[in-house]
Simulated assay, not measured.
Amino acid sequence: MTGSGPGLHDDGMPVVFRSSDRASTSGQRRYLGGTQWRLVLAVAAAVCGALGSRGAVVALVLVFVATVCVEIWLLTERPEEAWYDGRALAESTKTLAWRYAVGGAPFPGGLPLPEARERFHARLETLLREAPPVSLAPVGSTAVTEEMNALRALPFDERRRVYLEGRIGGQLAWYSRKATANVSRARTWRLLLIAVEGLGLTAAVLRLTGVYDFDLAGILAAVLGAGSAWFAVRQYETQGRAYTFAATELSVIQGRLAHTDEDTWAQEVADAEDAISREHTMWRASRGAG
């Protein structure tokens, strides 16, 4: 959930970030893939039930067996936990790295480097102790990276420029793109679901009037249910609103940071990172994650 930019790239983050990011990406892919299979199988079951032939009944049994297998896999593996918890750890690590690198609280620029490094390690170790095991792929060193130290050593004006372009500007562009994409997808899915509802109504009326005797309406009802379930899983409307709000808040913060002096910089960076973390907290809450 991040944008890229100059100054501090993903490969310049601590290993913990890359590890938890991989765990989250893998968990998301497996969870969405399992959910897709479950919904496709539900539609396939409706088709087999509507056909009613002996072969269709055998296929229906196989479909139900496959559905049970997918459900058991989702319950035992719980890939959504790796997705949510891995993303939480990755984003928490990223915000710590940016705070350290640009002199944001609790790592102000005037803090001696050894003390800042020690404070960073302590904060990161706390995150690791509190992180669920599913949020991590194998982890290597948790040390501060050379890129983070190089950015921290820059003069204030240069650090401010890099933070505004690489972090705030990158996040703002990312939120704006995501807001537009989610609003568009929500509208498309709404129209598709309405179209399926209309087809289902038409199919039911035609069967009622004796035009045909095939249970097409039942199949379309299954398609509608699967589509509605997928729409609920992706939460396009909720995310569209959340990203729009986050982009608006960050645009205000961007203007304020551009005129911040070195005396108030550390706290202003902390406030900006809190705003970014707040969006992610809302995202996790909407997913039902703790």
Score class of each variant (00 low, 15 high):
Gly3Asn: 11
Asp10Tyr: 10
Val15Pro: 04
Phe17Tyr: 13
Arg18Asp: 10
Ser20Leu: 12
Arg22Met: 12
Ala23Thr: 03
Ser24His: 11
Thr25Trp: 11
Ser26Phe: 13
Ser26Cys: 14
Tyr31Gln: 15
Thr35Ser: 12
Leu39Ala: 11
Ala42Asn: 01
Val43Trp: 07
Ala46Leu: 11
Leu51Lys: 15
Thr67Leu: 13
Val68Tyr: 06
Ile72Leu: 07
Trp73Asn: 15
Thr76Gly: 02
Glu80Asn: 15
Ala82Glu: 02
Asp85Thr: 12
Arg87Cys: 13
Arg87Tyr: 14
Leu89Phe: 03
Ala90Tyr: 02
Lys94Ala: 09
Lys94Tyr: 08
Thr95Glu: 06
Trp98Thr: 01
Trp98Gln: 02
Gly103Met: 02
Pro106Glu: 02
Pro108Arg: 03
Arg117Thr: 12
His121Glu: 12
Val134Asn: 09
Pro138Ser: 04
Val139Leu: 12
Thr142Arg: 14
Glu146Met: 06
Leu151Ile: 03
Leu154Arg: 09
Phe156Gly: 01
Phe156His: 00
Glu158Gln: 08
Gly166Leu: 04
Gly166Val: 01
Arg167Met: 00
Tyr175Phe: 02
Ser176Phe: 04
Ser176Asp: 07
Arg177Met: 07
Asn182Phe: 04
Thr188Leu: 14
Arg190Pro: 00
Leu191Val: 05
Ala195Gly: 14
Val196Ala: 08
Ala203Met: 05
Ala204Ser: 14
Ala204Trp: 12
Leu206Pro: 13
Thr209Cys: 06
Tyr212Pro: 08
Ala221His: 15
Leu224Ser: 12
Gly227Val: 07
Ser228Tyr: 15
Arg234Leu: 11
Thr238Lys: 09
Gln239Leu: 09
Ala242Gln: 13
Tyr243Lys: 05
Glu249Met: 03
Glu249His: 00
Leu250Trp: 04
Ser251Asn: 08
Val252Ile: 06
Gly255Ser: 04
Arg256His: 08
Leu257Ile: 01
Thr260Phe: 08
Thr281Glu: 00
Thr281Ala: 13
Met282Asn: 15
Gly290Phe: 05
